[in-house]
Amino acid sequence: MDVKVSLGVSLGAVLAIVLVALVGAQVSSLQLVFGILVPYAAFVIFILGFIYRVVDWGRSPVPFRIPTTCGQQKTLPWIKRNKLECPSNTLEVIGRMILEVFAFRSLFKHTKAEMASGNIIYGGSKWLWLGALAFHYSFLIIAVRHLRLFVEPVPAFVNVLDLVDGMLQIGAPTLYITDILLIGAVSYLFVRRVIVPKMRYISLANDYFPLFLILGIGISGVLMRFFIRVDIVSVKELTVGLASLHPVLPEGIGAIFFVHVALVSTLFAYFPFSKLMHAGGVFLSPGRNLANTNRAKMHVNPWNYPVKLHTYEEYENDFREKMKNAGIPVERE
């Protein structure tokens, strides 16, 4: 797939969604579809799809215990072992996974500063780690912040998060740090894919599409908050209604809201069928989530089956005379 085609297809798809939502927002009967039915459908697809994928992975067995060991194994007691990089029990595996999932440790690994020809050189990949971290955490915080739209009364931690996130106190309504971070990080991840030839070489439409989608979500959200204001009371009425399974459709919510919802719904529905499933897969990845205890504890392969062997008896039959001549003991003379 040519880069231009990949980019065009992805961008086109996102723009099409925006257009459809804009049209839908103008027609009151379609508001029902875009405000209530689509979000519900997307949510159901997301939950069922996610479960299906995880169960599907979970169903396929783990025949062998093959973690990548990145540190000293547990061995003689006087040799210092590396508990996090070469875990030897479940607790240590959890530790390794926490670092992996919450700190992207593997991405960080090759980013330390090094001396080369007299200068400190930082590997370019530190940026990948930073970008990925900024992106995922902003996304998480933004998602949590959105709880205030679905729960009444608003939980205290959401308020605190809100406060912290808006502590720069620029403008009114306050600018959230995470909004900037998210849009910045997604843009970085996107630009990186397009300008680094190596990345362009490996990127597919499946890589550009979610980036455009999330960028669209971010932009529409920011627009809604700062530029094309929507009636927040009505929005909350709708969202609380959705969450409490008593959906209502208040009048006069701006069109931009429907664009935002349509993009989020697309993301939800697309999630289980795409590489975004790495969110679930990372927990199941046998390269990281197993302890290096093969020699201490037997791992059972559910489909282990006997294989044809060249037994010792056959071997001796093949070579008995030669073994005897060479003075190697045999079972039968």
Partner: peptide, 9 residues
């Protein structure tokens, strides 16, 4: 087969 995001690391 499923989860690679082609991050390039």
């Amino acid at each position: 087969m499923d989860i690679c995001v082609r991050c390039g690391a």
